[in-house]
Design a protein around this nucleic acid. Sequence first.
DNA 1: TCTGAAACGCACTGCCC
DNA 2: GGGCAGTGCGTTTCAGA
Lengths: 153, 153
Amino acid sequence: MEELDHIDITILRLLQEDAKKTAKEIAAILNLTSSPIYERIRRLEKQGYIKKYVAILDKKLIDRSITTICQVSMRYHNEAFIEDFEQQVQKLQEVQECYHMAGQVDFILKIHTKSLEEYHDFIKTKLSKIENIGVLNSTFVLKEIKHTSEFFI
Amino acid sequence: MEELDHIDITILRLLQEDAKKTAKEIAAILNLTSSPIYERIRRLEKQGYIKKYVAILDKKLIDRSITTICQVSMRYHNEAFIEDFEQQVQKLQEVQECYHMAGQVDFILKIHTKSLEEYHDFIKTKLSKIENIGVLNSTFVLKEIKHTSEFFI
DNA sequence: TCTGAAACGCACTGCCC
DNA sequence: GGGCAGTGCGTTTCAGA
């Protein structure tokens, strides 16, 4: 798999910002015709650089205003428990992100709910049902300063 | 602004998963023709439910393998410093997410870099240059368990 | 609000350079 | 690799129900 040249980089940057940008528009920016742009996009998709195209929704309008960061530590650190936790978390639709961390805290989760009550319910009936959770520490987001799906390339 | 009916919800769910899904395909799922789907999508965009369409890139392939969670506390909590911090952070392209939190820690940031060296450099030359930062605590992601742009609706 | 038809532009292909 | 010309398909519009 070859390296990306500046044309590929520009295409990726533009599509990260706006996936509806047409090959024609990108071509105009790069002083090319649409065919090479189209072929490069196809290649970037096939090689996996572009994983998918998605619509980004407004979380307030769809009534998911509460964002919570939840830090979880396991009681025992054996492989089976860790893997079970990972599998369970992937199924929970309220969880938008989950990372296995280095350091004292084992996992950091970002969770979206309608309200604090719904979050309470989520913890009580879903998250804390997972076996072997030791410490569970929730902090609420007061304000979203920045949130983008773009990578700096 | 009216409530969303089940057709709108289905459209939003499908476009969250795959923005390339055509009005025709969505129409087939919902037993409708493409015109009403098209008009609903336009309405959902106009009303702001759909904020944008983006391409999601593979962070390993574009060489942004290191994800770091950085927790920041301010030294003094006055408005001017907080606002300055927020503005500075928005400009930093390595920062993908930043939240102002309730609790001891003031801000949580998610940062993507090529390497640990680049992260070190980011902290040294960019983040720590912002005035009035008290505590700055970085932990590295060992494994991404889940990361989606979708909301549960 | 939906259906159906019609117009338009872009995605996509193949050939040439 | 990129340009050019062609085809098919989806988007987009609109009259009618």
